[in-house]
Design a protein around this nucleic acid. Structure first.
Length: 849
RNA sequence: GGGGAAGUGGCGGAAUGGUAGACGCGCUGGCCUCAGGAGCCAGUGUCCGUAAGGAUGUGGGGGUUCGAAUCCCCCCUUCCCCA
């Protein structure tokens, strides 16, 4: 291979800075050059090495939608900065990239532009890879994965089979979320913003279909509990997951239907209100509804009502403002404790998915039940009074009383406070055999079937004699047929008869393939593991590689995945740990959720016309400018306000750094390379510069490493750059310190703006890549100040500054300030009550007058 | 309705009990220039003042403290999550 040494690069313009000739900052050529060198030298390739401390830095991989957008640019600028920083810190850094390449947009684009999803996707992958390389991202590109590659989805299918064999993948008929626009079902997590499809925003409806599910609820408790083991996650995300999992403790109890051999199960978290039950309500989809309808005089009405409710979407039925509607079945249930008869209703606000799909109605103490009861004239019976001693009246109250209080009308429990009643009544209930204490979760099993083409086929067949038969592992992958006709509004796989028709792996008889494909969130639930050994053909990943690299030390992505990808990936990791394939039970140790990129007060979007194209920014200003601006404009967790003028400011800064080196290149190259120690420096200005250099190192390191606040890290580098610009070296020691400062600036700028850093590093005559340099440590002796500024305060208000030697004692500091004529003038005629001395900072004189 | 996060110059943002506004953008004046939207120098919270200096100032109100953007209580506004 013909390798150009990076050293030869500077020869071409070694005349710069020596005559009148000025070399401009040609970012375009510089960036191309160094990207090529990095690639040729494999600078960012990495292997597992147990003798080195590893760091796994990962950014959420993109969907190959066509081109990078500003959100990607921000995500990858942050990740690359961290990866480069940690590499310079001496870690063995795994920093890979890939593509979440299955998904609906490929099909939509194919239909719209008459192309094939496969071609569309692969073209986009190649284009986006080019873009990522243009950003100067330090990925080990040999490890790239694409989830639509049979080498990858073979293992996605293999993982499905593992779930299946453990009984964690199952088929069931259930009312499921259906997006009419995407023509497919959706998991609960993928229904957002009060009942809308996460991808296209269409209002989701319910359909009763037989589908594949993963039993994520088996892991609900662990998914909840181990959030406590994630101190490196934002509280916000953990809270969102806790809410999503929605653990509640309560009692499951049955009500018998009077005169029939039917019982209706309900679940309540408020067993303390059992004496307040005045009706029972069932979800319209409840399996018992049709049976009750057949027994009821209102049968026709009930069936019509249930059919009508099925059309409405969930959010319309549950949001607080919606009218509560229902139909009386005319039948009664028997109260398990009192033996009283309570009417049974079918109501639109009861959801089949939550609890048992039926509730005990307690209008006095549940606002939804209250509204329903008032609408239909159902009695309201108070069983809890406020703790202040007032008594509620069920006939006149205008809202449910949902707070804690004191039990009443509750037999032997009267007088108990709510909290006590809850636990005692639950035990009492169980002891009498009326019900069972139970933990309930809001989290539902994960619906993974998709009625779409561009996804990983679910590896099962349906055999007339054997039923559902999984494909044997040795026959994987079940390849997605590429030769299909794309069509509007359906799954093209349904028409590939030669693919569907197959033989049963079990009996050899005729069988038909499953034509549904897997939710793409399955594909992205384990990609971080594949990156540890993407080449292996022996399994989804090599166990020893995963053991070395996992967990991901730093994960970076958008908060929109809080209750989607981030829950699924945790679930997969726990399942794989149970299979003995990974040693960790949590995949991501530290999570950074970056803010959105906004412009003119709104999220960038085509419809708002406020989109800034990354390519255009890189063409005009270069990747280094784009990265610098993104990191400087805002702390990573907050939204970033895009500003064209801010970008120019960032570009100007890089120009200033460039000139700093270029204008002094001849002298800099001649300057001593060994730093001059503080004790050998006498000139105050030189000592000051030396101090600034080392405090910059200290503060930049802390900002990146501990605070994860990259905007202030950049600000520190700008301060150093300003200090260097204002410094005029006069002798050899000055030049030595100046060179130390310039080199420090370049090294510390490397993770942020790597190309210009490489170029300047090279121009100064250094060997090798600055990307492979060690991150500097501050020289403690250079951090000590000679002089300090102390402030005089009078009653806490700043009055005057004093300069004094840094090593002065607190007592002397106080005495000097108090003895100063200016201080005496200020305190003249005032009563000094007290003097507070804060060493190194201030003296506060408290006076009275 | 419940929970969470936030509110600081003209703008993006610094400062987590000790000199509010680092750094950058913008703006003003000047230098350089054929010219400049390049570069350099100076200034830039508000009010009074030529200045020195003073007053005031971190959404509003109260409190703790020698001292509060920072801690506590109440209120207002915005955003997010859950109902």
């Amino acid at each position: 291979m013909d390798i150009i040494s990076p050293d030869s690069a500077h020869l071409a313009h070694s005349c710069a800075g020596q005559g009148g000739f000025r070399m401009a900052y040609a970012f375009d050529a510089i960036e191309k050059k160094w990207q090529q060198y990095w690639e040729e030298h494999g600078v960012f390739n990495v292997e597992a090495d147990p003798s080195l401390q590893k760091f796994y830095c990962l950014e959420m991989f993109p969907y190959p939608s066509g081109a990078l957008h500003m959100g990607h640019l921000r995500n990858y600028s942050i990740g690359d900065m961290l990866a480069r920083f940690l590499r310079m810190k001496g870690f063995n850094v795994l920093h890979p990239m890939g593509y979440d390449a299955f998904g609906l947009p490929a099909e939509n684009a194919a239909i719209k532009y008459g192309t094939h999803p496969n071609k569309w996707t692969w073209d986009n992958i190649e284009h986006m890879t080019t873009q990522l390389k243009r950003m100067g991202c330090s990925y080990d590109w040999r490890r790239r994965v694409e989830t639509c590659n049979p080498d990858y989805y073979r293992w996605t299918q293999w993982l499905f089979l593992q779930f299946y064999h453990k009984g964690l993948a199952y088929r069931k008929k259930a009312p499921v979320n259906w997006c009419e626009s995407c023509k497919t079902v959706l998991a609960n997590e993928q229904v957002i913003n009060e009942g809308h499809c996460w991808r296209c925003g269409t209002s989701v409806i319910k359909r009763n279909l037989e589908q594949w599910f993963l039993r994520i609820t088996d892991y609900a408790q662990e998914l909840l509990d181990s959030l406590d083991d994630l101190p490196g996650w934002p509280e916000r995300v953990k809270l969102m997951q806790r809410n999503w999992i929605g653990r509640s403790e309560g009692v499951r109890l049955s009500f018998c239907v009077e005169g029939h051999d039917i019982s209706i199960e309900t679940f309540t978290t408020r067993i303390d209100t059992i004496y307040g039950v005045t009706f029972l309500a069932l979800a319209p989809e409840h399996p018992a509804v049709l049976e009750l309808a057949s027994l009821s005089e209102n049968g026709e009405k009930i069936r019509n009502f249930a059919a009508e409710c099925a059309q409405a979407n969930e959010s319309e039925r549950t949001i607080a403002g919606t009218a509560k509607r229902g139909v009386d079945t005319g039948l009664s249930a028997v109260h398990p404790v009192t033996g009283e008869r309570v009417p049974i209703w079918v109501a639109n606000y009861i959801l089949m998915e939550y609890g048992t799909g039926a509730i005990m109605g307690v209008p006095a103490h549940d606002q939804r039940d209250f509204e329903f009861a008032r609408t239909y004239g159902i009695p309201v019976r108070v069983v809890i009074n406020p703790p202040d001693g007032t008594s509620l009246d069920g006939d006149t109250m205008d809202a449910a009383y949902e707070q804690d209080g004191i039990q009443c009308n509750s037999g032997q429990f009267d007088g108990l406070p709510t909290r006590d009643a809850l636990s005692r009544m639950a035990i009492w209930f169980e002891e009498n055999g009326w019900g069972k204490r139970e933990v309930n979760y809001r989290l539902r099993d994960w619906l993974i079937s998709r009625q779409r083409y561009w996804g990983a086929p679910i590896p099962v067949v349906y055999c007339e004699s054997c039923g559902v038969v999984p494909i044997p592992e040795k026959d994987l992958p079940v390849e997605l047929p590429i030769d299909v006709k794309m069509k509007k509004g359906g799954n093209p796989l349904d028409e590939v008869e030669e693919w569907i028709a197959t033989t049963c792996p079990s009996c050899g008889g005729p069988a038909r393939r499953e034509t549904d494909t897997m939710d793409t969130f399955i594909c992205s639930s384990w990609y971080f593991l594949r990156f540890t050994s993407p080449w292996t053909q022996e399994g989804p990943f090599r166990k020893e590689d995963a053991a070395y690299w996992m967990p991901v030390d730093q994960y970076i992505g958008g908060i929109e995945h809080a209750c989607l990808h981030l829950i699924y990936a945790r679930f997969f990791t726990k399942f794989l740990a149970d299979l003995g394939l990974v040693e960790v039970r949590e995949p991501f140790t530290n999570l950074l959720t970056q803010g959105m990129v906004i412009k003119d007060g709104a999220k960038m979007s085509k419809s708002k016309g406020n989109v800034v194209d990354p390519d255009e920014i890189i063409n005009t200003y270069g990747a280094d400018t784009a990265r610098l601006f993104i990191l400087f404009a805002s702390p990573p967790e907050k939204d970033l306000d895009w500003s064209d003028q801010g970008v120019e400011g960032a570009h100007r800064f890089l120009h200033r750094v460039w000139r700093l080196v270029e204008e002094h290149l001849g002298d800099l190259r001649k300057a001593p390379r060994v730093p001059c120690s503080m004790e050998n420096l006498q000139k105050p200005h030189t000592r000051d510069l030396k101090r600034i250099i080392h405090s910059t190192i200290q503060r930049v390191t802390r900002d990146i490493e501990e605070e994860r606040q990259f905007n202030t890290a950049v600000a520190r580098l700008m301060e150093l750059s300003n200090a260097l610009s204002n410094f005029s070296p006069e002798n050899e020691k000055d030049w030595s310190v100046f060179r130390e400062g310039v080199q420090t600036l370049i090294v510390c700028l490397t993770p942020i703006a790597p190309h210009i850093s490489e170029e300047l590093w090279d121009m100064l005559g250094n060997e090798g890549f600055v990307s492979s340099e060690n991150w500097p440590s501050p020289d403690e002796s250079a951090l000590v100040e000679d002089e300090m500024t102390v402030v005089l305060q009078v009653n806490g208000k700043v009055r005057q500054e004093f300069k004094m030697p840094a090593d002065i004692s607190p007592d002397e500091m106080r005495e000097r300030i108090l003895a100063d004529p200016a201080t005496k003038r200020r305190l003249d005629g005032k009563d000094v009550v007290k003097v507070i001395t804060v060493p190194g900072k201030l003296v506060n004189v408290v006076v009275r007058n």
